[in-house]
């Protein structure tokens, strides 16, 4: 059992790390497209075709890929002043509930967006423009980022429940109340 759990954790960590790196590269690419478009227009009267569309689409990856990593470091912002006085067990329960709420909300979005993908692939749907960029690939990345987040949230729920039972937080340095 614990072997499985630690395998789950290490695979998840690896994927989160990878997603973070990809998001960083994509962000650099976004700026590159904008800059190249400006230079291309000034120097050769040729801006990058479909630059607005591409930059917008790439932004989806920049936002969604790091979501799981942010959750791992307990970075998703919450209000803590109202509950700081609670004992660790109660805070564990709240943490589990908060992660559950995140999983329902983001999981719902990811599921619905991914659901449209097969139809779009079948129809060959693409965004109007010079490059005829297909609609589905960014939705696939969106779905992947959300899936990763949900997997991480499951682990947060488990950690919260553990704290609620044992009264111990496995990594209190990360929690707001510790400061």
């Amino acid at each position: 059992m614990s072997v499985l759990v630690s395998a789950y954790q290490s695979v998840l960590r690896g994927l989160e790390q990878m997603s973070l790196v990809i998001a960083g590269i994509v962000l650099l690419g976004m700026g590159g497209i904008m800059t190249a478009s400006v230079l291309g227009k000034e120097l050769f009267l040729r801006p990058v075709p479909d630059d607005l569309l591409m930059v917008g689409l790439l932004n989806v990856a920049v936002i969604v890929l790091p979501l799981a990593y942010v959750e791992r470091t307990r970075g998703h912002i919450a209000v803590s002043v109202t509950t700081d006085w609670l004992p660790p067990r109660a805070l564990g329960a709240l943490r589990a509930f908060g992660a559950f709420a995140m999983a329902i909300f983001f999981g719902g979005i990811g599921f619905m967006v991914s659901l449209r993908m097969p139809g779009e692939i079948a129809k060959g749907a693409y965004y109007d423009g010079a490059l005829q960029i297909p609609t589905w690939p960014m939705k696939a990345i969106f779905g992947f980022g959300i899936l990763l987040l949900v997997l991480r949230l499951l682990s947060s729920i488990a950690a919260g429940v553990t704290t609620a039972i044992t009264g111990r937080d496995e990594d209190p340095s990360l929690s707001e109340g510790a400061h």
Partner: peptide, 26 residues
């Protein structure tokens, strides 16, 4: 309901004017 909560955020994320925020942060 599912349409509103899924398509709204997706269209929101892929808008060009918002994409400038991460770049200003960078």
């Amino acid at each position: 309901t599912l349409s509103l909560i899924a398509n709204g955020p997706y269209d929101f994320l892929k808008s060009y004017s918002l994409a400038t925020v991460p770049l200003f942060i960078l």
